[in-house]
């Protein structure tokens, strides 16, 4: 990843207004270069999800332009959104099925993805029998199967407990190092944002804009111990302060509680 890598996502002056008149994002400008891992933090309801939906093409800007040069986009939602009647393997195969990947190839890729997220042995199990963390792994594997060059994450680990979340963070950045995709990762945990991101963008309260971008200069792969280094603390503090300003100016209650590492 070099600073001069070609762009893959370019949002320019994007507004998105819903039919009920809510302005979700306003004058949003954001660039993303190939191979970058951009974390986005912001107060609850600031339009973070809308930002991802705009990039994925699920929504179009009311004003402004959204240019996305990715060939395959992977989208990981906050909920695992697995199909309860399918086994893990069949769930992981779903997107490949939709994209009409031939059966044998689908099988091979699903097996590889399941191995990559550490779910070997659970191929024939239905989601109901998995823990929350394992369901998220399956959801991740489902996206990996298509080998996306751009990954969108919408607070994927938000519902998990601290330990599971940290372990999945470690594994996600190992995957990122290994596969070299581009990632746009929305979260409201500052620690998570800084640990994963090569850059962290802070959004304002609704209507959402980018108010600050902070570079995170650590090389990948990052060790779990990085979270305790003074430099990490300094960056996290900087992000936290910016975020806290957003929360207090918007007086949105009870949202910044995750920001302490």
């Amino acid at each position: 990843m070099t600073p001069r890598a070609p762009g893959i996502v370019e949002l320019r002056g994007v507004n998105r207004t819903f039919s009920d008149g809510t302005v979700a994002v306003e004058n949003l400008t954001l660039g993303l270069r190939r191979g970058e891992f951009l974390s986005i933090v912001g107060p609850s309801g600031c339009g973070k999800s809308t930002l991802l939906r705009l990039v994925s093409g699920l929504e179009v800007p009311s004003i402004g332009s959204a240019e996305v040069l990715a060939e395959r986009v992977g989208y990981v939602f906050q909920d695992p959104t697995l199909l309860p009647w399918r086994t893990v393997r069949r769930n992981v195969e779903l997107l490949a099925e939709l994209e009409r990947v031939p059966r044998a190839e689908r099988r091979r890729r699903a097996a590889a993805a399941i191995r990559m997220v550490g779910l070997e042995g659970f191929e024939k199990v239905r989601p109901a029998a998995l823990s929350g963390g394992m369901r998220m792994r399956a959801s991740l594997a489902r996206s990996l199967v298509l080998e996306p060059d751009l990954f969108l994450f919408d607070e994927p680990f938000g519902a998990l407990d601290e330990q599971t979340r940290e372990r999945l963070n470690d594994e996600l950045q190992r995957l990122f190092t290994l596969r070299g995709f581009t990632a746009l990762f929305v979260t409201h945990s500052v620690t998570e944002a800084v640990f994963l991101g090569s850059r962290v963008a802070v959004m304002s309260g609704r209507p959402g804009r980018i108010v600050r971008e902070v570079d995170v200069p650590f090389d990948y792969p990052r060790s779990a111990q990085l979270r305790f280094s003074p430099e990490f603390g300094r960056i996290a503090g900087e992000v936290s302060n910016t975020l806290r300003d957003q929360v207090t100016t918007r007086s949105v209650a009870g949202t910044a509680s995750h920001s302490e590492g």
Binding site: R53, S56, G57, L58, V73, Y75, F77, D79, T81, L83, L94, L95, E97, L98, E99
Partner: peptide, 19 residues
Amino acid sequence: RQHDLLTLHRAGRLTRLVK
């Protein structure tokens, strides 16, 4: 969200119905 997932991968009505 599951509908979104199918939309992202250009699933038609029939696929949506069946899958």
